[in-house]
Amino acid sequence: MSNAKSPKHIAASLTELWSPRVIAEVDDSYIKVAKVQGSLAWHSHDQEDELFFILQGHLRIEMDSGAVELDAGDMFVVPKGVRHNPVAEQECLLMLIERKTTQHTGGVVTEKTRSLADQLRAI
């Protein structure tokens, strides 16, 4: 039997911002955690939805149609094809559920973009 994991504790232990790490997989999806602060980048995922679950702190997800404000315990699914930009004014811990094919910042590449190999590194 595997050991239980605490996504919140794993996310809190991360030292890099905006660098999601894979902590589990379920069928064709990865479960990821991240520590974030500031703004990521405007991007979209043309073929995949993206679930954000807030473990600690506050996250605003800006979209062309408006923004959604999320606090600890809240979740939101950004539908495929929707341009969005996650923003955390203060440090925020989050969990993501994404298909294994989801690119970190979609087709947009910035200094914060992480490859799948980076996201799969041991914690």
Rank of each mutant, 00 (worst) to 15 (best):
K100W: 13
E16T: 11
E89M: 03
D28I: 02
T101L: 00
I123N: 13
V82I: 15
I97K: 06
A24S: 15
A67H: 05
G57V: 06
V109M: 11
D71V: 01
Y30C: 10
D46N: 10
P7M: 06
I31G: 01
A117L: 13
V22A: 12
N3L: 15
A34H: 02
R60A: 07
D74Q: 10
M63P: 08
L70N: 07
H84Q: 11
P20T: 06
H84M: 07
P86Q: 13
A4L: 14
A72I: 06
G57A: 09
H104M: 04
D49M: 07
L116A: 08
N85F: 01
V109S: 11
L96D: 06
S65R: 04
T102K: 10
D27Q: 13
D74K: 03
T105P: 00
H58G: 02
Y30W: 13
P20Q: 08
I97E: 04
G57I: 08
D46Q: 14
R99K: 15
V87R: 12
K100P: 09
H9P: 00
E98D: 14
D28V: 08
D64P: 04
S44R: 14
D27I: 04
R21G: 01
D118N: 10
R121K: 15
V77Y: 08
G38N: 06
V77A: 05
L120F: 04
T105K: 01
F53N: 12
N85P: 00
A88Y: 07
H43R: 07
A117V: 14
I10V: 15
Q103K: 15
